[in-house]
């Protein structure tokens, strides 16, 4: 197996982990917070009864969220680094995807670190952190998709 094939194989595995793990953590965290009475029982996807942040601010969910999301932030970083390597042969600006990934990862760590802390400045850190994380993660997903599309256009046999 060639090096690009190995990177693609690794990146596929990491992408699967990132599809399952954070979604599971967020939902399990909600179940913990609701079972301890910190947030109401509902379907947050359409009842809009609680935010993701609110589920990780008190009780066991506070520790669960922090101890899982910070390692997951590094898995995101690993994914963007692999994506950057896999797409290195196309002529995108070197390390753009990895650098955007670093910003998203730092934002997620800041958000997770400020979770549960009292005060307006921590609230601001949480707000900026989650917006930057979502925006830059989405931006990187678009960028990867664009680079793959370009590569296919350049070499239709791929």
């Amino acid at each position: 197996m060639t090096k690009p094939q190995m990177i693609s194989r690794d990146i596929a595995r990491v992408a699967l982990v990132l599809a399952i793990l954070p979604t599971a953590v967020i939902n399990i965290n909600y179940l913990i917070a609701a079972s301890e009475g910190y947030v109401p029982w509902c379907v947050p996807y359409w009842d809009s009864c609680t935010s993701i942040s609110a589920t990780g601010q008190e009780g066991s969910a506070f520790f669960f969220f922090k101890s899982t999301m910070i390692p997951i932030a590094f898995i995101y970083l690993w994914y963007w680094k692999l994506a950057d390597q896999a797409l290195a042969e196309t002529d995108h600006s070197p390390r753009t995807i990895a650098n955007i990934g670093i910003i998203a990862c730092v934002a997620l760590i800041c958000y997770t670190g400020a979770l549960g802390a009292v005060g307006d400045s921590f609230r601001l850190v949480r707000r900026i952190g989650i917006i930057v994380f979502f925006t830059f993660t989405y931006l990187n997903q678009l960028l990867v998709l664009y680079q793959i599309h370009r590569r296919k256009l350049a070499d239709p046999s791929r």
Partner: peptide, 16 residues
């Protein structure tokens, strides 16, 4: 809050 939950879910579906 519902938008936040849905966006988080969709971004991870994108990883899938």
């Amino acid at each position: 809050d519902a938008f936040e939950w849905i966006l988080a879910l969709l971004i991870h579906v994108n990883f899938l």
